[in-house]
Design a protein around this nucleic acid. Sequence first.
RNA 1: GCCUCAGUAGCUCAGUUGGAUAGAGCAACCGCCUUCUAAGCGGUAGGUCAUAGGUUCGAAUCCUAUCUGGGGUACCA
Length: 594
Amino acid sequence: MIRDQIKSAIDQALAHQADDLHLNSPEIEIQGLLNVERPRHGTFGDYAINVSPLAKYARKAPPQIASQIMDQLGNHFWETSVAGGFINLQISPELLTKSLIGIAKTEKPGQNQVYSSLHCLLEFVSANPTGPLHIGHGRWVALGDSLGRLMRHCGAAVTNEFYINDAGSQMRSIANSIWYRALEILGTGGKLPEPQEGQPYPFYPGEYVIEMAQEFLTEHKDQVLAWDNPEHVAPEAALTELMSYSKTSMLAKQKALMERCRLTFDVWFSEQTLHQAGQVKQVIQTLQERGFTYEKDGALWFASSRLGDDQDRVLIKSDGSYTYLTADIAYHENKFQRDNGFYNLMINIWGADHHGYIPRMKAAVAALGYNPDYLEILLGQLVNLIIDGEKTRMGKRKKMMTLEDLVDEVGVDAVRFWMVSKSQDTTLDFNVELAASASDENPVFYVQYAHARCASILRNAFQPRLDTLTQETKPPLLQEPEWQDFLAQLSPESMADLLDGIENEPAKQALRELILKLDGFQDKVLDAVRQRSPHTIARYSQDVAADFHRFYNVCRILVSDPAVAKKRLVVIYALKKVLAQALELLGVSAPEQM
RNA sequence: GCCUCAGUAGCUCAGUUGGAUAGAGCAACCGCCUUCUAAGCGGUAGGUCAUAGGUUCGAAUCCUAUCUGGGGUACCA
């Protein structure tokens, strides 16, 4: 990577001049003191170094420092110049070509081992098996899966995990709801109770529950009739049966949808198993032994405020049942203990509505004796649906648009790209009409089109050509074996004059920019992991596509001279790899044609 | 009240160890298809980076206060 080469050259130059620039005191870390960046305006060169941060040590004017350092940077890989406090570098065609060859020869561009010591348990989506996944879940699908893919690309071991909330009171609620819907269908007189003002409503009013009831009745009609009673209250046996049915049915649907979204969970972790294995009971005992619990008002409390939470939390309610938090603490202890403490980073992706939950979870981890810094909560802001130009709050509608509906309408690629193309720190407005109807307004097609164009060019090189003037069919520009040999023996010599052979100046500039952009891919991947921001990869893919389309318009690839065409084809070959890799990291398909 | 995310072009958003003239897409307007995919490209226009202070050689970026909007503030999950 070009930037790394410049960085080490700079560090060397600084070390060499440390005395003169007064950089030799021990508290100054020379490495990384200066930043190597791509200037916003191409007129300043390909890369730039701002030396102003040195001025306070060197006690010299920045332009003077710049020219002093520049003298040490002499190197046939780039030309240097000074403007104010900046050293500008113009990268040589040789180095650009070398970089391109490197990409063409790499199996997976951007792949590295920088995070090879990272063992990450990545938990996301984690919905209740009480209903379909909604559109907001789509954001966690896109964000979490892309982040996991990016981390693996940087050498980390990542486990994708889905926590199934199958043990709480919401399971009883869905069972009761299905029960009443079934009675409504059967017409026995039982019906779903109306909500009471100011009272919690322990039922699911959604229309999908009616479908679930219908489905349940096809197999269990006689049983439901047998269960029903004059009061129409569901007997315990019915609820047990319905909870089990709901879980099985919804989980199967969720799994199928995740698969459709190209997301694989390595572990589906059931909350119920924690209760069954006695781990919830056990974790309370551990907290008690460590002195973080006390009894008050008939409940058992966790003294989380001693560990940074703003108030204490209930572990066992006065009715004797556990809170959600209690099982969650047991779950997190399980994560820390899993595989003999294999994981050194737990990332949980949560919606912003769970923000207040972070301090108590961190407190719990600390109370159990683990390092709370190993638990990282990635908060994502929520998704607003825009329907008919109006913002619709999630959950306000009886008939909500589900994630599956959305995938049906716009396709997996558009959903995944759209959901991950904006920073998770901003509320996402999902305009359904726009995503569904105006496909050419969707940036995902722009990137995919660039990839398909590359594929098309690579196909055409080996196809017989039709001369439109004479109507003659000419032989293909290249033969496969010849091209394969050329690829296998790529070298600065065989690629010489790739850039200098282009006389048209805009085309040469466009190609330089394209190669520089491809060269920066690994940096982008590393940044995305470090900042937990897959959206930068979505943006990058659009940048690369734009650079390519620009280049394509000013420079023909398949020119009649096969020697020239081959070299340009290497650009397309490397570019296609990078585009495909970027799209794969986002979980978006890279079509061979469109 | 407190916690938290955001406020940048008409719209949707980029912009991270603070650096040169503020960046894209869409929408608008003007151009570009006899040759590799026009789902493309070029150009024009569009900005007091919410406001006010502060730190700094230098601030969209850091600090403080204020304003506006989202989310949270359960013995719900």
